[in-house]
């Protein structure tokens, strides 16, 4: 994909997460891009550079769907939802365990942040559950808080 236009800053991190999961978990990568596509269309699909970018993203999604064709996570929403939700929760749990053990490092910050992005992605399947809304809020806040503490040389509480 070409670099995303400025208007698509809100989906930049979801697109990066897709790229990072291309090999590790293509289903997660697919739904991150689908989320980016749906959100991107809401942000701006008229401006030529945005439209061009969305067409490229759509091309990529269609290719991925073909490649993943017989995967039930792609063909059935309920399975896809469970797959992304489990993955997000695993990320969240890993970061939370590290946090509670007082082990603060870049990897756990990234896991909190990625979990929060994946809870965004879950909205492609419908409204989030109250629990997922809370996890997303907590993960986003924790990632920012611990990041700032480490940057300022402070110990997170």
């Amino acid at each position: 994909l070409p670099p995303a236009p400025q208007q698509f800053k809100p989906i930049q991190h979801h697109l990066r997460t897709a790229q990072e999961h291309e090999k590790r978990d293509p289903v997660v990568a697919y739904f991150c891009r689908l989320y980016a596509m749906q959100t991107g269309m809401k942000i701006d699909s008229k401006t030529p550079e945005c439209h061009k970018f969305l067409v490229k993203l759509m091309d990529q999604l269609e290719i991925m769907k073909k490649q993943l064709g017989d995967n039930e996570s792609i063909t059935q929403d309920v399975v896809g939802n469970a797959h992304v939700e489990n993955y997000a929760y695993k990320m969240f749990l890993y970061a939370d365990t590290e946090d509670r053990a007082g082990r603060f490092h870049k990897n756990m910050i990234k896991s909190f942040y990625t979990a929060s992005l994946l809870y965004d992605v879950l909205t492609v399947f419908g409204e989030l559950t109250e629990e997922n809304i809370q996890h997303r809020k907590y993960a986003k806040w924790k990632a920012a808080y611990i990041h700032n503490c480490l940057k300022n040389g402070e110990t997170p509480q």
Partner: peptide, 27 residues
Amino acid sequence: MGSVGSSVASAEQDELSQRLSRLRDQV
């Protein structure tokens, strides 16, 4: 000319929406 431009843009958007619907079609 403005109206031709806007109809082209709207047709392009429709095409993108249709492709998105096809993508979301459950088997």
